[in-house]
Amino acid sequence: FCLTPLTGATSPLMLSAILLEAALFYALLTVRTKSVVTTYLTALAASGSLWQAMHFGDFSANSYLLCFGGLGLAILIGHRVFTSAEDETTDISTAIGGVGHLMLSISGIGCILMTLNRLWMGGFQGGTILLQIGFIVAALLTALMQPNADLRRWYRVLAIGEAFAMFLLVTFGLDLEAWQKTEIFVTALGLGLLLAAHVGWAHEQDRRSDWVTTGLAFGSLLTVAPLMLGMLGQRFGFYHEATGWRFVHEIGGLTVALLLLGSGILCRLRATTLVGGIATLTYVATLLVFVRLPDQLQHMAVYMMIGGGIFFVVALLLSIYRDYLLALPERVRTGKGLFRVLTWR
């Protein structure tokens, strides 16, 4: 049917079949001639055939990017796994890898541009966020597989671009109050500082970098402070939040605090350990706010009795641990026991 003259409107499925035949022709020619040019022509014709077939099936824009980006990643993984060291330097092998890089890179750039367009025209879309997360993972995975430093750098830049576009879509696309968008912005900024500081820390040699220390400290504070302040504001009644944002403060604050504390202990980093520990203690200590006394106990005399009891217990503990408390400044100075945290990076 491909030899039948076309009249009127051309079916996308017909064009897909013609391009598929062209792709098969160029593929056979590549096998025979080992030509780099025909390798790229094969990929171009096959991509056009797939494009027309998806157009005939009325797929969404997300599906195009997901399909071509996924194919590019699959080509790169297959090229990395199944190509031997001897074949890796051949022209055909390089061309196949180049096809994978082109497909993944063009799809990733297309995802960024589509995100900016949807931010301008339609606002937040959950499917776009999932697509961006997929491209971020694909870019980072490809960067880990690449022996070429320039390609590793490019895919890191692509991942950062995807993350920044996703951040813009979440921050300005959601129907939120100004303070909520500010909270997202500050938390994301803190996460970015933490990520950069951890990368710098991993590449440190014997000499410590001041910017790494600053990044760890400010990154930890900026990440957890907005969530903790929002949580404290809710618990002490400074404002009332009836939407799901309340759970962002409660669950998100605890999660970030525990992650900072755990990563700080594992990596022996002082700033993240201290900030995470203080945030976790604050979260646990302020749980007492949820304790509601009966109406009969809500009198000044009862509060005075509770205060006197607390004072008595504190005085008793001070008398028992007097020697330990007197030795505390020396333990802090020498970094013994729990205070070893103060000697960490």
Rank of each mutant, 00 (worst) to 15 (best):
S209M: 12
S209N: 14
S209R: 14
S209D: 14
S209A: 14
S209W: 11
D210K: 12
W211M: 09
W211H: 15
V212K: 05
T213R: 15
T213V: 10
G215T: 03
A217V: 09
A217R: 14
A217M: 11
F218E: 00
G219S: 15
G219Q: 11
G219C: 11
G219I: 05
S220K: 06
L221E: 07
L221M: 10
L222C: 08
L222I: 06
L222Y: 11
T223E: 10
T223R: 02
V224E: 04
P226H: 06
M228V: 14
M228H: 07
L229R: 04
G230H: 06
G230N: 11
M231L: 15
M231G: 00
L232W: 03
L232E: 02
G233N: 09
Q234F: 02
Q234L: 12
Q234M: 13
R235N: 09
F236E: 07
F236N: 11
F236C: 08
G237W: 14
F238H: 12
F238E: 10
F238S: 09
Y239D: 05
E241A: 12
E241C: 08
A242W: 12
A242S: 12
A242M: 13
A242C: 04
A242G: 13
W245T: 03
W245F: 12
W245M: 09
W245P: 02
R246Y: 11
V248K: 04
V248A: 11
H249R: 08
E250R: 09
E250C: 01
E250Q: 09
E250P: 00
G253Y: 00
G253P: 01
G253N: 10
G253Q: 03
T255Y: 10
L258K: 06
L259R: 03
L259K: 02
L259N: 07
L260D: 00
L260Y: 01
L260N: 00
L260A: 02
L261M: 15
L261V: 04
G262E: 09
S263H: 09
G264R: 02
G264M: 03
G264K: 03
G264W: 01
G264H: 03
I265G: 03
I265A: 14
L266A: 15
L266N: 09
C267S: 13
C267Q: 13
R268E: 15
R268I: 02
R268S: 13
R268L: 12
R268Y: 08
L269I: 15
